[in-house]
Amino acid sequence: MRSKKRQRLRWILRLGILGFVLLAIWTVYVQWKIQAAQFGETKAADVGIVLGAALWNDKPSPGLRERLDHALALYEQGKYPRLIVSGGLDGNSSKLTEAEGMKNYLVEKGVPAESIFLENEATSTYENLLFSQKIMEQNGWRSAVIVTHHYHGARAKDIAAFIGMREADVDTADSRVMNMTWHNARETLAYTKWEVDKLLMRVGLR
């Protein structure tokens, strides 16, 4: 009996070590994909898509302002003549959707209100891009520049390819205000969840 119990414990220990090693390998792989992502030169497009992030008291958080300022710089460079701002209510007691807060910020910076299109429903990066793609289709726009932070760019690019956005570049901002240790760790989990979701959608289970 003792021999069988010891053998069982050895197998449990081996499986635990194997699981830890596989988790470590996966974490390193995902972080490599995130940090090494290359997006190439951004071509002029029909529309820019700014992916949402948190509002603070109905104003863009410092991190979201970085995305918006980057999107604004591209707009002023003539990379696109209009923008879609994407994001719904983020559940932190804001009265405005992320999209509404982003539009207000860009209008204050001088972008004409009629050049900004709201996507008010998305609660994930997948929905950001899927719902923005529908706005593009409704308006006959074919090409887009997706604007986000660098740590988020690899997942955004993969999602865009998955949903069939064939003419979509990703242009990213580096952050000087966000806690990147926390955001990189969170993105590892988010990227893992996306890979699972993608697999489930491919086999028809989601």
Rank of each mutant, 00 (worst) to 15 (best):
D69F: 02
N57M: 10
A71G: 08
G48D: 09
V50H: 05
A54W: 10
G52V: 14
D69A: 12
L72W: 01
A54D: 05
L51F: 02
G52C: 05
K59P: 08
P60F: 12
N57W: 07
P62C: 03
V50I: 15
L74H: 07
P60Q: 14
A54S: 15
A73P: 03
V50N: 09
G52K: 04
V47H: 05
P62I: 00
V47G: 07
A53C: 11
W56S: 09
L68N: 10
D69H: 10
A54M: 10
E66T: 06
D46T: 02
L72H: 06
L51W: 09
N57T: 10
L55R: 12
I49D: 00
I49L: 09
G48Q: 12
E66Y: 05
L68Y: 03
V50Y: 03
V47Q: 10
R65N: 07
V47M: 08
P62R: 02
A73E: 13
A73Q: 13
V47R: 08
E66S: 01
D46M: 07
D46K: 04
H70N: 01
A45L: 07
A53P: 04
H70Y: 15
D46Q: 10
D69N: 14
L74Y: 05
D58G: 14
L74V: 06
I49K: 01
L64V: 04
W56T: 10
P60L: 13
A54R: 14
P60T: 13
H70Q: 02
L55H: 01
G52F: 06
L72N: 02
A53R: 11
S61G: 04
N57F: 03
G48M: 12
I49H: 00
R65D: 00
R65H: 09
A53G: 08
D58N: 15
L55K: 08
V50S: 11
V50R: 09
L72Y: 05
R65Q: 15
G63Q: 12
L55E: 07
V47K: 03
L72G: 06
G48A: 14
D46L: 07
L68P: 01
I49V: 15
L68D: 14
N57V: 08
D46G: 10
L72F: 02
D46R: 05
G48P: 11
R67V: 00
W56F: 13
A73N: 06
L74E: 08
R67N: 03
V47L: 09
